[in-house]
Design a protein around this nucleic acid. Sequence first.
DNA 1: CCTACCGATCGGTAGG
DNA 2: CCTACCGATCGGTAGG
Lengths: 203, 203
Amino acid sequence: MSPRRSVAEARRTRERILDRGIAIASVEGLEGLTIGRLATDLGMSKAGVLGHFGSKEALQLAALEEASAIFNRVVWEPAAQLAPGLTRLRAVCERWITYLEREKGAFPGGCLFTTASMEFDARGGPVHDAVARLFLVWRRRLAHEVWLAAAAEELPRETDPQQVAFELMGLYMVLNQSVQLIGDASAPDRTRRAVARLLGGGG
Amino acid sequence: MSPRRSVAEARRTRERILDRGIAIASVEGLEGLTIGRLATDLGMSKAGVLGHFGSKEALQLAALEEASAIFNRVVWEPAAQLAPGLTRLRAVCERWITYLEREKGAFPGGCLFTTASMEFDARGGPVHDAVARLFLVWRRRLAHEVWLAAAAEELPRETDPQQVAFELMGLYMVLNQSVQLIGDASAPDRTRRAVARLLGGGG
DNA sequence: CCTACCGATCGGTAGG
DNA sequence: CCTACCGATCGGTAGG
C-alpha cells in the first residue's frame, strides 16, 4: 500500500498508460492526447502519469513507438515468414486492410500515424521527425518488397518500386479516410481491386 | 472612431478573419484555430473576433465554407469551361496538383480538408458532417467526370467511375502528405504518372 | 505514485 | 468592436 511500487509494477503501469494513450490519440490526435484525460481515464493523478515520461512530448513519442510496434506485429510480422516477392507483398497488403477496417482495426479512431502526419506536417520538432521517419521507413520497406517481386520476375521488368509504394500509400490513406470519416463499407474491396491491378493480380 | 462600424466594414473584417483563419487552420487544424490566436494575429480582441460568428464551431464551419469556395475557384472553375470528358478531367487533375504544391499551393499548411478529415473522422457533430459532405461531393463530381469521359468512349467501357474517383482521392492524399510531411519533390510527378495511367494517358 | 499548486490559455459572457 | 471577467483545462513543478 506504499506509494512506491516495484519496477515491474511501474512498467505495467507504463504499458497501461500507453495502451490507453494510443486509443485516445487515434481518436483525438497526438495533441488531443492530454495528460489530464489520461489520468482521468486511468484513475490516476496527472503527476503520476507524467512521471513515467517527463513531458507531453516524450509521452507522444512513446505512444508513437508503441503504436509502431503494434503496426509491425499486426501487419508485417505475420507475413514476414512468407516467401519474399509477390506472395509476401500481397499478404502484407491484405493484413494492412484488416488493420484499417472499422471493427477489426487495431486502433478505435483509425490509423494513428495518418492522423499524426496531418497534425504535425506543418510543424518542426521531434514528433514531426518521428512521424516522418515512420512513413519513410514503411515506404522504403514497401518499395523493397516490390523490388524483390520484380527481381523474381513476378512483376514486369519496367516496374518502378518507388512509384508502386507511393500509390499503395495513397490507397491506404483513402481507405482509412473512407472507413473513418464516411463509413464507406465498399472501401476495403475497392482497395483490394486497386492493389490487385497495381500488383498485376487482375484487371 | 466609434466602435460601431458600417455593415461593409464589418463584412471586410469578417473576410480578414476568415482569410487568416484558413491559414491558421491549414497549419494547426480546425481545433488549433483558436479565437485568441486569431485575435492576436489580427490585432483585435477575442470578443471582437467571436462576435462575427458566435461560437468556435460556427467559426470552423465558416472557415470550411470559405476554404471550399477557394478550392472551387482554384481547382474546378478554371476547368469548368473546357469540353466535358477526358480533357476537362485532366485539366482538373493538373490544377489539383498545383493546389497542393509547396510554393504554389492555396494554403500554407497543405490541404485543410484532409487535415480536418483526420481531426474529425472519429467525432460527431456539425463540423464532422460538413467535412464528410465536402469529400462526398467532390468524389461524386470526380466520378461524374469519369463517367462523362467513359460515355464519350474516351475511357474503356468497363471503367468504374467510382473506383477511379476513389483511387484519385488516394493519390492526392499521398501527394499532400509527401509534400507537407516529407518535402518530397518527386511527389507531383509521381502523381501525374499515376493519374496518366489511371486515365489512360500512358503506361 | 500522491496532493497541492503555478501561470497560461481555452471558449465564452456581460455590458457598453 | 472594446474591456473586464468567468470557470475549466492545459502542461508542468515542488515536495513528499
